[in-house]
Amino acid sequence: MRLDRNTFLSIATMVIFGLVLWQAETFLGDYQIYIAKLIFINIILALSLNLIYGFTGLFSLGHAGFIAIGAYVSALCILPPAQKEIMWILEPIIWPFSDLLTPFWVSVLGGGLFAGVFAIFIAVPVLRLGDDYLGMATLAFAEIIRVLIVNATPITNGSLGIKGIPGHATLLVCYGWALFTLIVLARLCYSNFGNVLRCIRDNEIAASVMGINVFWNKVLSFCIGAFFAGIGGALLGSHLSTIDPKMFNFLLTFNVLMFVVAGGLGSLTGSILGATVITILLEWLRFLEEPMDLGFIEIPGIPGMRMVVFSVVLLVIILKRREGIMGTRELTWNRIFAFFRRLERREKA
């Protein structure tokens, strides 16, 4: 591949960013690093849903299910056997999960692969019916996963969840996986394969007349998206160090959906922006849930208040700026340069 200006700039940015993150501990506090890691994980989740919903037009509400699969598979892979024996108090953990111990990267890939394979089982029957049922079916599927996790106690430790997951997901590791996700998805979406997916999204009939196997390409897109959701889940588990079935409820899917819609359906850079901005906002809005003393009146903390605020924000986005921050456009180097050229011209004038 020839190295043109834009590729060079992209690589340079990635490397410089990596170097900065490598030294992050010298200038960022623990809390800030915690948020930064969450941002990268959310970027992975947003990108994966954008492939499914934004590029292929499949309205999926099952993301939390795939994230849960990734998180549990990875946790089972990296939790030391001795710790598992102590923690599974309801029912002892069964072999081979009891002796399983893999490197972190294997566990992350494993989480992704499991989620991707599970996705086949939902995509094939549901997409045969047509995508009208997809939203409901995927939502139900995510709930089923949760119920399975609660009940498969000898594997998952049931509703007690898994605690003390090794924190292998450092800032650089999260950054690396986010880059991996971005590069793979950008290469897919901006090759002719991406054109095919977008054609399916816009006009399924036209796509099939162009010789495209609509069903198979939808299944494929869905499974690739689920794969990366699993990867995000694996990182999330290690990042939070504790997982339990309650975490992976609809609210998690809703959050990811919010990143994607706010960033722009069909824009990868939009998803990155959306995930970043909203993750920060969500943290910042935490004060809403704490008891507030306004001097003349004392408001007790209302849990879930920031989600209420956020639903309103999402509503406003949908009403006022349907296409999100980026629409279907991408933030490319060409666009950035064009922007600065315009700015320069305006200053001269």
């Binding site: 002719n192 394969f193 054109n195 095919v196 977008r198 054609c199 999204r201 816009d202 006009n203 009939i205 036209a206 796509a207 007349v209 162009m210 010789g211 495209i212 069909g266 279907t328």
Partner: peptide
């Protein structure tokens, strides 16, 4: 098609390239 079925947000070239996919 009688009622045009293109991807309106995709470029002219991208629309044509969708047709290339099958080969």
């Amino acid at each position: 098609f009688q009622n045009i079925r293109l991807s309106p947000q995709m470029t002219v070239l991208e629309n044509i390239m969708v047709g290339c996919h099958v080969r």
